[in-house]
Write a protein that binds this DNA or RNA. Structure first.
Lengths: 226, 226
DNA sequence: TAGATTGTTAATCGATTAACAATC
DNA sequence: TAGATTGTTAATCGATTAACAATC
């Protein structure tokens, strides 16, 4: 089962933008705006209109030439594509600051992601409530995750991430998002993605540095006095 | 000042991986390993060795053919490239769960990013200490950020993000990382990057959905009984 | 010299973009 | 019919990868 993967793949880059379009469409809908255009969507989201049309074309052809897109209809198509037809259960392992932030993050519910379990390695904090859910001991993970087809989130400090990943895999979880620094090994059938909160900051810092480097090279005669 | 930008640009994709290499090299250094190879680095980080060599070649040629890379020397080169020659001051606006998580995030200090100020819109929590720093009222932002060439981080809820961005821009900040959902408008001279914590989860959810879709299309005769 | 490993080339892939024919 | 806007094409760009000549 591989070679020619069936033409179902919407590019990840497009998937990442769909929630932005959906947010704008929802706001339009709330204001009673019945239809829109790729130009308007592009302006609201901050991309080029050609990209909007390309992205939306992956969903099928839901626009009308010369007219635009129906707000309600397009909203539904995007929501469907994002899997919001059903809710995806999420468990979070690691209830430090980051885990708590994620548990309370408003952006999840609006995208069909429902947090159903919070876990921490430290049994002493078990029972505390975060965003309405109790923190549970790791021993409970299997019973919550097994057969529920959950998405697992690792929000532990770096050193505990391996333990968290092993526990998730052992409980049958096949989709894991890792916020902890460092790389993790998981079986092939498990999809593991990683988010490093510092990466984008690092890129900003490097760009800042490059801006300085450019200035000092481009204007070598500027501040000459020794 | 534009057209042919001076050949200083290390690709962002490479910059994003450099901290991973540095982390592995630091661990090797601690264990007294004097040299390594692109194969070893690749295995430790979870990429192909060709990618490692390509990435490192952007830093100049610091390896020795037939031998490998000197751990200490390569560590220094990467640290220098990442701007760790100096420390970059960071201010965080929005001290909810996410802001607190970022303030305490260990990954920052190790990359030359130093949090020097925490701010919140709600003056009632001013004075509270998070990770050793006091939360300050927004009114203090200008005095802290002005002329300090800081990187600004927006960790507010979505609706407050615009206000936070305006305050940062008004204080002269030209590099901003936005963790709040929604898009922000900033002047051209300000570099704005965005991280959406839910995006990667969303991608996992869509992939999960596609896996189901594939199964039901590929094996249409499997569970037939009505 | 034989063995190892880099740095670079060239092929490939995926994403972005401008332009425009198709269509309302 | 004239005007507007989509959906698609083709060019471009950046990143990944395999392969290998260069070099220790």
């Amino acid at each position: 089962m591989s070679t020619a993967l069936p033409r179902r793949g919407i590019p990840d880059a497009t998937v990442a933008r769909l929630p932005d379009y959906l947010r704008v469409l929802t706001a339009m809908s709330a204001r009673g705006i019945p239809s829109t255009s790729s130009e308007q969507l592009a302006a609201a989201v901050g991309v080029r209109s050609a990209k909007v049309r390309k992205d939306l074309s992956h969903l099928g052809n839901h626009g009308v030439r010369g007219v635009g897109y129906d707000v309600a209809n397009l909203s539904m198509k995007i929501a469907a594509e994002l899997g919001q037809a059903r809710e995806w259960p999420v468990v979070i392992v690691g209830m430090g600051n980051l885990g708590r932030a994620l548990a309370a993050y408003g952006g999840l519910a609006s995208r069909g992601l429902r947090v159903i379990g919070l876990f921490d390695h430290d049994d002493a904090i078990a029972g505390q409530r975060v965003a309405g859910l109790p923190i549970r001991p790791m021993a409970d993970l299997d019973s919550v995750a097994r057969d529920a087809d959950v998405i697992g989130v690792i929000a532990t400090p770096g050193p505990s991430a391996k333990e968290a990943a092993d526990a998730l895999v052992a409980a049958g979880v096949t989709s894991i998002l890792n916020f902890a620094p460092g790389s993790l090994a998981v079986p092939d059938e498990v999809e593991l993605r990683k988010v490093d909160l510092a990466t984008e900051l690092q890129i900003l810092a490097v760009h800042k540095q490059q801006r300085y480097a450019e200035v000092s090279r481009d204007v070598p005669l500027a501040g000459v006095a020794p």
